[in-house]
Design a protein around this nucleic acid. Structure first.
Lengths: 348, 348
DNA sequence: AGCGCAACGGAAAAGCTTTTCCGTACGAGC
DNA sequence: GCTCGTACGGAAAAGCTTTTCCGTTGCGCT
């Protein structure tokens, strides 16, 4: 007698047939009642609904999707490990997808193309309605190999070598310009730039933007004051030392990341240089946890990755609904200047 | 004539029927050929396989799942925003699920119970095989409301009020003990503790562990040297100041997070206190990017969240396969001491 | 040459929902 | 009172795969 409840057998979910039986109608009628279609007497509709509620009926979306030829799911593939960039991106994506009642398959990050291929196959087999590709670098990558299938694909914080692909990218040049203009506005004249590896497109673009904004203000970017290294705090410290030691005057530093800026700020502090009085600093990323904890808190460029994610998802939804091919183009999402204390003059 | 290719019509995926037609066999035969079942002549099998490959046939998993009553997907629900903790957890989970060919539905984080309910319904409707609940706090939370359904659920870095639930938690007490033992081994006698808000279970447990390890070494934890505050770098700086000012001697500080430790280290540096010579520091979290950039790099406790994620996923797989109810219990996953430079004596 | 068995492959049902197409029954109008 | 129209709800097909159950073919043996 104990054996019945001993094995907490998993209950099989209630189906539309169960509801039909209990409500004394046919399954078709249940479907109509629940989906507000067909011609049903109000009381029939109500009765069916009540029965469904009592039974806790949840339509099997597998069956629904099979029928509708639309799964209401999308896949996210990332060619790099989860990280600081993926998070706000993911948030933005989910933000836009949630109201559309679309669920997200997350694929384990990999930059192995063979593995990526397998992930794509797996998503295809699940009949996702679309795929979002994200990365940690904005440099062009090989287009996603759909292996003959045709399906909307959006690259978010990633770029495909295929010029016709839908890509959403942060406006790195604009970000650089934002920093340059901010310095100029505050009366800084000689701007240094400590940034990441030259091979990153973002590094080159931000520098271009910075130079452009300075030029617009009648200033020039001194190549001697541009130092490319890695993305680390360590590099920020080292580069700051170097900058101080070459003895060329400068009154502001634009940093390629908040981490670099953090390193820079620490070194300046050690060396008795006052920020922002002697030197203004602008960081990049608006990585709250770093930017806010730095002394002084960092004025920085926010690439608005959450917004980028939202836009990417919205774009994907558009492509799914339109059922048209990838009429597309790369789009740059504007950055935002976040003013804290590291440049002084918070008042815009 | 242009209109045919004008609208890049989405191709409808190739089905098993297409393969059957092209291979000149029935759909049943195709299924058998592809799945290695039934009695088929080797050449038939090969021919079908070749046809399938040419056509790029990918079985519709929706239909498969419908039939098998098993979707090979699991849902992840998190009651807190994506963050530093979710990332390694997710990595671990995917690590364990990927080889089992199980895909993950990621739900937008929320701590709104009503919204959570909706997410669960959505997962249930998708007939996920199980659910993993994660959080950012290890304090007990209300059990996930499955609304009558029965389905394996595992709590990872989260705890259910239901004592029978399967919970995987970091061994915070053990983590505290690890720090205490490390200090004792290095000959430190008077240990301070700067930690997060008292209301966190983790804070209380780590403290207990610390005290226990000290007691084991014949030392006592001086309550005057225990400071609870927030999890921020700012608090680390402030608490370090206070500690230095009260004038009670101490030769080591156990910090509740690497961020706190970072703040502490910065303040000590400002005040001319040498680490590790004058004072040893142990952090918590092994948040690489912070711990490694601190001067000196932080010796810290790694809660091994990736391992925890792996274990959680493995546990869930077990529950799914076993088809038994939640025969479960809370499990503590051991932490790991990561030695860098902030305590000196790297040699174990 | 005929019988039986093994090997092979086809037909059909099941899994669950939606939707189209019909049939029935009722009310209204003549 | 009869017919037509409409409102309601049922039956069945479609969507795609797997699996069970059978039927057929061909071979070997006598």
């Amino acid at each position: 007698m104990a054996s019945e409840q001993h094995n907490a057998q998993r209950r099989t979910p209630v189906t539309i047939h169960d509801v039909a039986r209990d409500a004394g109608v046919s399954v078709g009628t249940v479907s109509k009642a629940l989906n507000d279609r067909g011609q049903l007497r109000p009381d029939t509709r109500a009765r069916v609904r009540a029965t469904a509620a009592i039974l806790g009926f949840l339509p099997n979306e597998l069956a629904q999707s099979l029928h509708r030829k639309r799964s209401f799911t999308v896949g996210i593939i990332t060619s790099d490990r989860f990280g600081r960039f993926s998070i706000p991106l993911l948030e933005g994506i989910e933000d836009a997808l949630d109201p559309a009642r679309i669920a997200v398959f997350l694929c384990k990050p990999t930059d192995d193309l063979e593995l990526e291929r397998r992930h794509v196959d797996s998503l295809l087999a699940k009949r996702v309605d679309g795929i979002i590709v994200t990365s940690r670098r904005t440099d062009p990558r090989r287009p996603l190999d759909l292996g003959g299938a045709s399906l909307p694909v959006v690259y978010a914080y990633a770029q495909s070598e295929d010029p016709a692909a839908a890509c959403l990218l942060p406006d790195d040049e604009g970000g650089g310009a934002l920093a340059g203009a901010h310095f100029a506005r505050l009366g800084r004249r000689r701007i240094a730039h400590i940034t990441g590896p030259e091979r990153f497109a973002a590094v080159r673009e931000r520098r271009v933007g910075l130079a452009r904004a300075l030029a617009d203000a009648g200033l020039v970017l001194d190549d001697q004051l541009v130092l490319s290294g890695s993305w680390s705090e360590e590099w920020g410290r080292e580069a700051a030392e170097r900058l101080l030691d070459i003895g060329r005057p400068f009154d502001a530093i634009f940093c390629g990341s908040d981490q670099i800026a953090r390193g820079v700020a620490d070194t300046l502090r050690d060396r008795g240089v006052h920020v922002p009085e002697d030197l203004a600093i602008v960081g990049y990323d608006n990585w709250e946890i770093v930017a806010a904890a730095t002394r002084p808190p960092l004025t920085t460029i926010d690439p608005c990755l959450d917004e980028l994610g939202r836009l990417a998802a919205t774009r994907l939804l558009g492509m799914i609904d339109a059922n048209d091919g990838q009429r597309a183009a790369a789009t740059r999402v504007p950055c935002r200047l976040v003013v804290r204390a590291s440049c002084g003059g918070g008042a815009e």
